[in-house]
């Protein structure tokens, strides 16, 4: 095995930030920093850290405009999915899912993409951009391509490799979320990213394992601590290949659905199960008034049982 994942600590040191979350009165329970928790299987990625890890790029001003530059390197790596399955990933910056890129609407986005993965890869962003930045042209091993476009429209988007077979390139791990914030900031909230994915570990074009944020069953063993009565804003993406759709279901609560995050006003309706086709994504908002542990999972229960489930642990207000 060559390449391998970039160590978590190393990745953390990459230049980023500027522009901060609307943290106002948001209460986020303390999380031991760098705690990979149980079930990390020695992986260098941490689904716990990924939850609230937003890569805002390296920010510069060019001719009066905000430019956010992101560096993404495609390579291969290993991920221990469970005790029995070590999976060879194709990843960006050592992460599956890839970094959550975040910008404000109208920012100039510059993605420096370097392919060290062997196969040809590309980065195709959802959202508006010119045809020559659509990322369907393969970038050969050893090459660099700089994608540049305006961040628009605001909402929850994604990016992924678009080289065929796309099922394999995405299934191996070349996908991530791309959040474009609206001109008027959304109200302060504890913001979390959850990406559902499937793993076809034996190349039979069916998924044997599923996961939120890369590692199956992780949040069952490492519940996500959230604060009682705190507004939670989930950015949820279904990136499961081979299965037509998956739902997201939350226990003992309802959430509002803001489709593709395209509304500034917030969600348009309430439910506790939302159906998403592959690549569909929404903002879901809710608060828990009760304390304790509450599950979340697709209600395709075979997916949940095969790794796509977790707990929120609602911490009482003092």
């Amino acid at each position: 095995m060559v390449g391998g994942a970039i160590a978590w600590s190393q990745r953390q040191s990459l230049t980023r930030s500027q522009g901060t979350l609307p943290q106002g009165a948001v209460k986020v329970p303390a999380m031991a920093p760098m705690n990979h928790g149980e079930m990390s299987h020695g992986n260098s990625i941490s689904p716990m850290a990924m939850l609230r890890d937003f890569d805002r790029g390296t920010v510069t001003q060019e001719n009066g405009r905000t430019v956010r530059e992101f560096k993404l390197v495609a390579q291969s790596g290993e991920l221990q999915l469970d005790k029995a399955n070590k999976f060879i990933t194709w990843n960006l910056n050592g992460r599956v899912p890839a970094p959550t890129l975040r910008a404000n609407e109208g920012d100039r986005i510059r993605v420096v993409f370097q392919n060290k993965g062997g196969h040809a890869h590309s980065l195709h962003f959802h959202g508006d951009h010119p045809a020559n930045m659509d990322g369907i042209k393969p970038v050969r091993n050893g090459q660099v391509f700089v994608y540049e476009f305006d961040a628009k429209p605001f909402g929850v988007h994604l990016y992924h490799c678009h080289v065929e077979p796309v099922t394999r390139h995405i299934g191996k791990g070349l996908y991530g979320m791309f959040i474009v914030d609206p001109p008027t900031p959304r109200p302060p909230a504890d913001e979390l990213v959850l990406i559902m994915a499937g793993y076809d570990v034996n190349a039979d074009r069916k998924n044997e394992l599923y996961a939120f944020n890369g590692i199956p069953h992780y949040y069952m063993h490492n519940p996500i601590a959230i604060q009682q009565d705190q507004l939670i804003r989930l950015y949820v993406l279904n990136m499961i290949e081979f299965d037509i759709a998956a739902t997201f279901h939350l226990h003992a609560n309802l959430f509002t659905v803001n489709q593709t995050g395209r509304s500034i006003a917030g969600g348009s309706y309430e439910t506790d199960v939302i159906t998403m086709g592959t690549a569909e994504r929404h903002i879901l908002e809710f608060k828990y008034h009760e304390t304790g542990k509450f599950m979340f999972h697709p209600h395709q229960d075979f997916m949940a049982e095969a790794g796509c489930m977790g707990y929120f642990d609602v911490i009482a207000n003092a």
Binding site: M1, V2, G3, S76, E78, K86, I88, W90, K116, G117, G118, H119, R140, N141, G142
Partner: peptide
Amino acid sequence: DTANSEYGAAVAD
């Protein structure tokens, strides 16, 4: 160079 990267993505454990 490509063969080397691909072989790296073929082998684990």
